[in-house]
Computed example of a mutant assay.
Amino acid sequence: MRYDPSRPAGRLLLTPEDKEAPARALRLRRLGLGGGPDPVLDSFADRLAECTGAPYAMVNFIGEKGQFFAGLHAPATGPVAKSDGTRPRVGRSMPRDHGFCPHVVVRRKALVLEDVSDYPRFAGNPVVDEFGMRSYLGAPLIDTTGMVLGTVCVVDVEPRAWGKAGLETIKSTAADLAARLERRADDGFPL
């Protein structure tokens, strides 16, 4: 069943409750993550976008009140033109109720949305209309303590068959990056 914006979705559009958010915020601070853009994580996002062919790639840390893309690869202008002719660009921060990463964090497992409009729970998300997001592939960044720090994700403005290969790529990329982030924090080594 495809999403029909004329039908009420009720609770489907709610971002799931994140009971680990306070502990995650503390863990992120201890690891020195999510406080600002990180050029190394930007390069990581650039490589991820190139590897998957996606126009957007992010390393996203989720705090108590919002999300922060410490690593971001995005086009210079957004694909969706507003009524005033502007094309909004994805910035470094986003409210928790925008996008799909908060769902990945709470679920603690990867999420594949090949065509967002096929999923009523996700099709009404603000990023669909604001930025034209149509497909998503993301996996949680889980550290050795079992804490989900955030996500690694790629997004496209067209429906996309990510397939099993895409799922395995994003999952292994997330696991590798989570280990590197901890090593960097512990030892001071670059990614």
Rank of each mutant, 00 (worst) to 15 (best):
R87W: 03
Y56H: 13
A70L: 07
P126L: 07
R160P: 02
D186Y: 10
G166E: 01
R30F: 10
L13K: 01
F100K: 00
L149Y: 01
S172C: 12
L26K: 13
D143V: 04
L41V: 12
L113A: 05
M133K: 01
E130I: 12
C153V: 08
A76E: 12
E182L: 09
F44Q: 00
I170G: 01
I62S: 02
S83G: 09
T15A: 14
G85W: 07
V152L: 08
P39N: 09
E20I: 06
R7D: 10
P140D: 02
M133A: 04
V116L: 05
G166T: 05
A178F: 11
L137G: 03
A185Y: 11
E168Q: 12
S43K: 09
L12R: 12
R7W: 07
V127H: 00
G63L: 11
G124C: 09
T145I: 08
A81W: 04
A179N: 10
G166L: 05
G71S: 13
G34K: 02
V148E: 03
A161P: 05
G188P: 13
A139F: 02
D97R: 12
L48N: 00
G66H: 14
R184L: 06
L113V: 05
I142E: 06
V152N: 00
A175Y: 01
D176S: 12
S172V: 11
K82H: 13
G34E: 07
Y56D: 04
P5Q: 04
W162H: 01
C101R: 05
G35A: 14
A123Q: 06
F61I: 11
T151Y: 05
E17C: 08
V152G: 00
S93Y: 11
F68Q: 08
P39L: 11
V40E: 12
R134F: 00
R96E: 09
P16R: 02
D18Q: 08
T169I: 11
L13A: 14
G10K: 07
P22H: 08
L41I: 12
K164T: 14
F122K: 03
D115P: 03
R47M: 15
D129E: 13
T77Y: 11
T86Q: 08
K82R: 15
V90E: 00
D38A: 13
R87D: 01
L167R: 04
F68K: 07
F44L: 10
G85K: 13
V112E: 13
T15F: 04
P37Y: 05
E114F: 03
A185G: 11
F68V: 15
R30A: 15
D118M: 06
I62K: 02
V157I: 10
R29Q: 14
P140E: 02
R134E: 05
D186S: 15
L48T: 09
R160A: 00
G66E: 14
T77I: 15
Q67F: 11
G36M: 08
T52Q: 03
P79F: 01
I142K: 01
L149K: 00
G36L: 08
P55A: 05
C51T: 14
A110Y: 03
E20H: 09
R107H: 14
E64Q: 15
D156M: 05
T145M: 12
M58S: 09
F44T: 00
V154L: 10
M94E: 15
R180A: 15
T144L: 09
V106Q: 04
Y136L: 06
W162L: 01
P159C: 04
P120V: 09
F44R: 00
V148T: 12
L177R: 05
S117R: 14
S135Y: 02
P120I: 06
K109H: 15
T77D: 06
T77K: 02
V154G: 02
V154W: 04
